[in-house]
């Protein structure tokens, strides 16, 4: 078995108004950051996965994200997976 680390970024779908992002954007504008636009706020989740191969680890991680970590009605996600040094 090998150990892998998964990094998941969950964002509101494009087209859904991100009121939190909008509020932060307005705040930055009042601080003088006139060149900043389209702020969107999401979640960043990491976890470790044990599996024989990176493909299997990715499959397990995707399944976990699909089952609980994101809501397909309103969110999209990006998953990255990498090996952690040393076998276990």
């Amino acid at each position: 078995m090998q150990k892998f680390n998964a990094k998941v970024k969950v964002m509101l779908k494009k087209g859904i108004l991100d009121v939190q992002g909008k509020t932060v954007e307005n705040s930055l504008k009042t601080l003088g950051f006139d060149n900043i636009a389209n702020i969107r706020i999401g979640k960043f989740i990491t976890f470790d996965v044990e599996a024989d191969t990176i493909e299997k680890a990715k499959e397990i991680a995707n399944s976990a994200v699909d089952k609980l970590l994101y809501n397909p009605n309103i969110e999209t996600y990006y998953l990255e997976i990498e090996s952690i040094e040393g076998n276990i």
Partner: peptide, 17 residues
């Protein structure tokens, strides 16, 4: 109920935050 897919859609943060 929406998370359980017994009802469609989702509840987002209030637009007033």
């Amino acid at each position: 109920l929406t998370e359980a897919s017994l009802l469609p859609g989702a509840l987002l943060k209030n637009n007033s935050l």
